[in-house]
Design a protein around this nucleic acid. Structure first.
Length: 838
RNA sequence: GCCCUCGUGGUGAAAUUGGUAGACACAAAGGACUUAAAAUCCUUGCCCUUUUGGGAGUGCCAGUUCGAGUCUGGCCGAGGGCACCA
């Protein structure tokens, strides 16, 4: 048999793919998008999986007659470029551009149907100048603000560190102890959209439930009320927020945050200072904070209980009360909140039960807080009500007494977008001499990043630049200083999908194209972006719509698919160093040796491929060895796309063998001898091919690409068995064309080549699947006795109970169970089973 | 701690959504072809039986049903998200 020359075939077809587009003039639009990559240097298997899945969908939709938009770009701003540039004394721009070139060449070798005319790169001035314009629009629409927040400050590098750059409280490069420093930073007011972002999740049936739930929890709605407590002997009030106003009669203290206005009174008190120190020593990780002991500082101040005359409650400053949620103050009801319970135990505060599970009004000692439902006790006018009715009644009273109001809070915080970095989009704001901050005039855009920067000095290169920072306020002609912060790279990726609709437009987007192509019909990417990227993008869409009423789209991604990771075993040498798979020779499942040193290698668990553990497989090597089609075929087979997949060398090898068989089959069919046609055989053959077409089409629609691949193996086997039967060359050829067309989205090079050899003229058309033919097929039908399957009979579809019964009883396998027995009942389900109860 | 998802052969997984459990693939064992190897093809898969057959069986325990991998309740285990959010 002739071996398929996949290298020649792939080269030939990739040239054609580059020149062709997935456009169907009169077709319905379909925007297929995979999350664009960060140009880190080379593509990895994760990219291969992501983009192969996307390519199958894009090609499939195109063949089905859709007008498909399938673009690709580069998320090219970010910290790694800066680091790499420092390390190799390169310009970040050059480093990035080189990587893009390499990765683009690699992507083309996968045979993707990408429209490279639409390519964009976020570090391009042509891209980020529009972003600056949008920033100004957002600013003018009141969606940008400036606030003080804490950052991780590296005193040696004189720079702000990202959370992942802080290792055990020290800077990753300088190893200096990281300080918490308060900086004034820019924010997008995403919290203005909390309610909308939450509510609109309901309009996204095409999103995984899991992602929607994660976003829902992230936004974190809680419904409750605000309530004022009057401070005793002072003409002042403390406003608190609670979701349990029903437990007000169980209140035994007020707790406020360390940063609360009232806490400031004690700043010169040495005991308070000690307390503050103690709080800051607890640790910085969130888990440490959550499990930390609850401690408090007694202010010796009291408030009056709003509903119990002459009752007063002490005010404590407590480490577990957060300033940036609600009002930084709460009332503590120890009996029905675990934190309050712990606190009350420590400071010997009263624990008053006001909700009873079982109408027990006695005040037995509690071992832990009771947070469940029940009847109100000990609560004056609330007594006897259940929790939810009590909430309504007390809120009514609070409003009536004008001491508070109903309120809904969200956990979501505003999006901090300032980064003290060089390699990012400059924020188009300037500082005037009088201390005010204003946006630059739009006519002065773009604010270009200077290329002549010194990255080896510590601190922000933009701040260190001799001239870039200095500018002039256009309106007044007065000198001003530029903002040296650059934008978080999540901003870049929050609207690239809109830019793809009109990548050459002079404006950030062309309204007509945007309204035509948006929303993205199918978005595909990793689950790690479930919250931030997807939430920010949703915010951007809404913000753009607010700034421009001509935009009709309010949710950017109609359907979302999150694919799993690519995993591989890990290998460790006897000295504890990680080894690359190519350095290891496997003897069997549990044994492996170091190829060079011949020493034994420890085989570790299969984990997501990562450079640090060296369990990576280079896609380019695989493509060279087995061909792009085989790599694509393998990565789509075996595991469902949403789950993790194990990379296996034997797997990709067997994939290539199967593709060779398809090639052989094509040659066999082309050279098939003329034989007499057996009409009924030919009809059965056509029906069966049609049936597989139906199953494959359905599997792709359901994103069950692994199931589709399995169907191809089956249909191949069936086809191979049919060749020797009395079926004409023409029938065989038509059948194979059908199969190859179904295969085209998976293995575009091989399928195109074979189709060409079979003289197929309408390669781009999805084969017609005749659903009527399906009905004539014979089906396997189960015969059960007492619910146990005793026989499987082959019958015509849609046979009546009477006819099936006749055949079923005759079956020797069944009859021995029912002979001499009285059949009490017969259950018949058309086309499925008949069940005799004896 | 709270929330969510998932448990099917040696492995990755299918299962028409309550109706043939294990399709398809990897690995293993055995066999066919071959002087031999590679390649290719076939068989097996847990228990009993020489075979024909039969039985058990989808994490564990119960329940609903003629019939449960699928539905309900409880338990065990794995993974993920959130984390003092009042």
């Amino acid at each position: 048999m002739e071996r398929v020359n996949f290298q020649a075939i792939e080269k030939k077809w990739q040239k054609k793919f580059e020149a062709s587009r997935l456009h169907n003039k009169n077709g319905k639009k379909f925007y297929c998008l995979e999350m664009f990559p960060y140009p880190s240097g080379k593509i990895h298997m994760g990219h291969v999986r992501n983009y192969t899945i996307g390519d199958v969908i894009a090609r499939f939709k195109f063949m089905k007659g859709f007008d498909v938009l399938h673009p690709m770009g580069w998320d090219s701003f970010g910290l790694p470029a800066e680091n790499a540039a420092r390390l190799n004394n390169l310009n970040p721009k050059k480093w990035t551009e080189q990587n893009i070139q390499t990765m683009k060449t690699q992507l083309k070798k996968l045979g993707l149907s990408i429209d490279w005319d639409l390519e964009i790169s976020t570090c391009d001035v042509d891209y980020y100048k529009h972003q600056q314009e949008m920033f100004i629009d957002f600013y003018n629409a009141g969606l940008v603000s400036r606030k003080e927040t804490y950052v991780n400050w590296d005193p040696v590098e004189k720079t702000v560190l990202a959370n992942e750059q802080v290792i055990n409280g020290k800077g990753w490069r300088s190893n200096a102890v990281v300080e918490r420093k308060k900086l004034s930073q820019w924010f997008f007011n995403i919290t203005k959209y909390s309610r909308e972002l939450l509510k609109d999740l309901e309009n996204l049936p095409g999103w995984p439930q899991k992602v929607k739930l994660m976003q829902k929890n992230w936004i974190g709605e809680s419904i409750g009320c605000e309530l004022d407590f009057k401070i005793k002997n002072e003409n002042k009030k403390i406003r608190i927020f609670t979701t349990r106003p029903d437990t007000i009669f169980g209140a035994s203290f007020i707790a406020i945050s360390v940063d609360h206005e009232i806490s400031k009174k004690f700043e010169n008190d040495s005991k308070f200072k000690d307390f503050k120190d103690q709080c800051s020593k607890i640790g910085t990780t969130e888990e440490a904070l959550a499990n930390a002991e609850k401690i408090g500082f007694d202010t010796k101040l009291f408030v009056e209980h709003p509903f119990i005359e002459n009752k007063i409650l002490p005010i404590y400053v407590a480490n577990f009360v957060l300033m940036d949620y609600g009002n930084g103050a709460i009332f503590g009801c120890p009996a029905h909140d675990q934190r309050d319970f712990d606190f009350a135990k420590k400071y010997e505060l009263p624990i008053i039960k006001v909700v009873s599970e079982n109408e027990d009004t006695s005040q037995n000692e509690l071992k832990e807080a009771y947070t469940g439902n029940g009847k109100m006790i000990n609560s004056s006018f609330l007594n006897g009500l259940n929790v939810s009715d009590a909430k309504n009644k007390i809120i009514e009273k609070i409003v009536l007494n004008k001491i508070g109001e109903k309120k809904t809070l969200f956990r979501l915080k505003d999006w901090g977008i300032s980064r003290q970095r060089y390699w990012g989009c400059p924020i188009p704001m300037i500082y005037l001499e009088d201390g005010s901050v204003v946006p630059v005039d739009k006519s002065e855009l773009p604010i270009k990043l200077p290329e002549d920067v010194n990255l080896s000095d510590s601190g922000n290169p933009l701040k260190n630049h001799p001239s870039w920072i200095k500018t002039v306020h256009k309106k007044t002609g007065k000198p001003a200083l530029r903002e040296t912060d650059t934008l978080d790279t999540f901003v870049d990726s929050s609207w690239y999908f809109i830019r793809f609709c009109s990548p050459k437009s002079k404006n950030p987007y062309d309204v007509k194209s945007t309204n035509h192509w948006m929303p993205v019909d199918q978005y595909i990417g990793g689950i790690e972006h479930a919250i931030l990227h997807l939430l920010y993008s949703r915010f951007f869409m809404k913000a753009i719509k607010r700034c421009d009423e001509k935009i009709t789209c309010s949710e950017p991604f109609k359907n979302l698919f999150t694919q799993g990771m690519v995993c591989h075993e890990t290998y460790k040498d006897s000295d504890g160093n990680w080894l690359y798979p190519e350095e290891v020779k496997k003897i069997n499942e549990k044994k492996a040796i170091n190829k060079l040193k011949k020493t034994e290698v420890k085989i570790g668990a299969s984990e997501s491929m990562s450079k640090s553990k060296k369990n990576t497989i280079d896609p380019e090597t695989m493509i060279k060895q087995y061909g792009a089609d085989a790599v694509r075929w393998f990565i789509l087979s075996d595991s469902p796309p949403e789950k993790d997949i194990q990379w296996s060398d034997t797997g990709v090898y067997s994939a290539s063998k199967f593709l060779q068989k398809i090639w052989n089959l094509t040659n066999t069919v082309i050279n098939a001898k003329k034989i007499k046609n057996d009409i009924s055989r030919a009809k059965d053959f056509e029906n069966k091919i049609n049936f597989y077409g139906f199953k494959i089409d359905k599997a792709i629609n359901n994103f069950q690409l692994n199931v589709a691949v399995a169907q191809f193996y089956e249909v191949y086997r069936y086809f191979n068995e049919s060749i020797s039967q009395s079926i004409t060359q023409k029938t065989l050829s038509n059948g194979l064309i059908k199969i190859l067309k179904l295969m085209l989205p998976f293995t575009p090079h091989l399928a195109n080549e074979c189709l060409q050899n079979l003289n197929c003229k309408d390669v781009d058309k999805w084969p017609e699947i005749n659903s009527k033919v399906l009905e004539n097929l014979e089906i396997n039908f189960a015969v059960q006795v007492n619910g146990k399957t005793r026989d499987i009979i082959l019958i015509k579809k849609d046979l009546s109970e009477k006819d099936v019964d006749k055949i079923a009883r005759k079956s020797s396998k069944t009859s021995k169970y029912i002979i001499d027995k009285k059949i009490v009942k017969t259950i018949f389900i058309k086309n499925k089973i008949i069940n005799y109860i004896i």
